[in-house]
Amino acid sequence: MTEPADALSDLVSLRVERSGRVAEVTLLGPGKGNAMGPDFWRELPVVFRALDADPNVRAIVLTGSGEHFSYGLDLPAMMPRWAEYLSGGALAGPRTGFLEEIRTLQASVSALAEIRTPVIAAVAGWCIGGGVDVISAADIRLASADAKFSVREVKVAVVADLGSLQRLGAIIGEGHLRELAFTGRDIDAARAERIGLVNDVYPDRDALVAAARALAAEIAANPPLVVRGVKEVLAENTRAQVEAGLRYVSAWNSAFLPSKDLAEATQAFLERREPRFTGE
């Protein structure tokens, strides 16, 4: 891989490299397990829109640095931003601010789905919560044998609101989606392949990344305008449903997310213990 262009060289949470007509975007954190903090949400759409505007980039591989794709949302980094919204009671100002915050994060994830360039997510290790939201917006998903996936928001008293509930139904079917979203359970790479969350599973991370690069190169060798046209036509199959679902869940969470159960989930996370939910 070659060094990134200057326009994308001052990044904190992502690294961009190019080889021929393929760009590779790597999650860097800086939170543990490539957790997704403010820098990630700001940089993600910038990076993908810049690559999409580059006529020399015909396919993109997205992967994580180190052993894991992503632990998901970086709660310690994000909670200070949300404290005012979540402690504002039923007042319209804080609720409106939180609605705008959710929709900003949604737009970051949706950038992957909306660009014209195909995106291949290569997942090794853990892919949790926001990580699943991100790979759901990719066009193709591959995994290493050690990969594990979890739509875990229910475990922290949150309705997943960044795209998993809107996009995964078309990928894995409603039954599997409801099971994962209601339980928050972890699934391994073998189960992910059986239900269609990933196309193929490879022995280790090196084999995974090599396969993702080879697939991206195969796509990049095809007529670029036709490939982009295929993505546009396929996106139209679910576009209206996804957009409506994202609007609905952002309004739902801006109204109903603050709860005693959310506070308990946060406290339990900090204290490394099981939460005790009361439905309040």
Rank of each mutant, 00 (worst) to 15 (best):
R116M: 04
I60T: 12
T26M: 05
S136A: 12
E179G: 09
R81K: 05
D74F: 04
D54A: 01
T2V: 14
M78L: 07
L142Q: 02
I172P: 11
A35R: 01
K231Y: 07
E274Y: 12
R21V: 14
W41Y: 03
T238W: 15
G169A: 04
L208D: 00
R228S: 07
S254Q: 09
F48A: 05
L246S: 04
G130F: 02
G169L: 08
A160M: 07
T183P: 03
V12H: 06
W41P: 00
R49E: 03
S110K: 00
P224H: 11
V156L: 14
I187N: 12
R167P: 02
W41E: 10
L14A: 03
G89C: 02
L215I: 04
V22S: 05
G131Y: 07
V134C: 05
F98Q: 02
A143I: 00
V22L: 00
M1E: 10
A50W: 01
G173W: 11
D52N: 02
A83L: 12
T104G: 10
L11T: 00
T266L: 13
T278K: 08
L62C: 14
A53I: 00
T26F: 11
A50R: 03
E24G: 15
G163N: 04
V198D: 08
L105Y: 09
C127W: 01
G29M: 04
R247S: 13
A83S: 14
I115R: 05
D74R: 06
S9K: 05
A23Q: 08
K260L: 13
N222H: 07
R152K: 15
L197D: 09
E43H: 01
F69Q: 02
S87T: 07
A244P: 13
T63S: 06
L162P: 10
E232T: 13
R95F: 04
A220W: 11
S70T: 02
R167D: 09
D188Q: 08
V198M: 06
A92H: 15
E24V: 09
R191D: 12
A268H: 11
K32C: 15
G64L: 00
A83T: 10
A35Y: 12
